[in-house]
Amino acid sequence: MKLKKMQKVLLSTAVCFILTTSTLYAAADRKPVELNANTVEYDTQTGLITATGSVKMIQDGAVLTGASAQYNSKTQEGFVTGGVVVDKEDMHMTAAMIKTAGANHMIATGNVVAVKADKTLTGPQIDYYPDTSYAVIESDARVTMTDGTFTSDRMEAYLNENRLIGTGNVHIVSPPRNLDAVGDQAVYYGKDDGKVVLTGNAVATQNNNTLRSNKLTIYLAGGKADVTT
């Protein structure tokens, strides 16, 4: 059933929808969803919605746009593809495809770039949980900040806490601080004066001075870095 301008109420025992002017709202016991597109196909039996052309999906304050989308109103799972952009409060993300696994889990794939405050997260895939502002980059992770970059095999970002955890082949470069540091794992704390704790084969070089230890703590106060073992 193709709908370009929907002005009818559909009822079933499992789910209740109000569809009006190409807009869909889910039942009251779920997060409301609004879907707009040039063409929409809706299967009342399966709950599957397929949208093409200038797709815009809104759910729980998140706005996703792209070329095409599928969404299952019963499972609250779906995806948007084709130059996808998502905005959720102060988070801006672009990707080739973004899947939604419920209202509070988005999986972005394909040259993903996510910007929140002063941090830009990039990677082939980013899992983002909007309710807690928590993100995971499972491989080739990079975070760019005001004073440098932080790369690792895997990265966890607790964005509300301004805390990052990088694991595997950690590399931190800060040109303003003349700092280059590596290790097996690093935890970045951005609050207060800020610090980075490197563990496992940790090496930090600053101003031609090099420190090596199993654990190095780099204090970031005053626009400079003080390294201690």
Rank of each mutant, 00 (worst) to 15 (best):
E41M: 01
S22H: 08
L24A: 10
F17P: 03
T46I: 06
T21Q: 10
V40N: 07
I18N: 09
N36I: 13
V40Q: 10
G53F: 09
N36S: 12
D43K: 10
D29I: 08
D43Y: 04
A26Q: 01
T39L: 12
Q59M: 15
Y25C: 03
I58F: 09
I18C: 03
T20D: 15
E41P: 00
P32F: 05
L35E: 05
G61H: 08
E41Q: 00
A51K: 01
M57W: 03
C16I: 06
N38F: 04
Y42N: 12
V33H: 00
Y25K: 10
V55H: 07
L48I: 06
A28P: 04
V55K: 10
S54V: 08
R30A: 12
T44Y: 09
F17M: 13
A26E: 09
V33E: 02
Q59T: 12
T39K: 12
C16R: 14
T44V: 14
E34G: 05
G61F: 13
Q59W: 11
A51L: 02
T50G: 00
L35G: 07
S22T: 09
Y25H: 06
I49C: 04
D29Q: 15
C16V: 10
C16W: 02
I49D: 00
A26Y: 01
P32T: 03
S22N: 12
G47Q: 02
L24S: 08
N38S: 11
L35T: 07
Y42W: 14
G53K: 11
T21C: 13
S54L: 05
K31L: 15
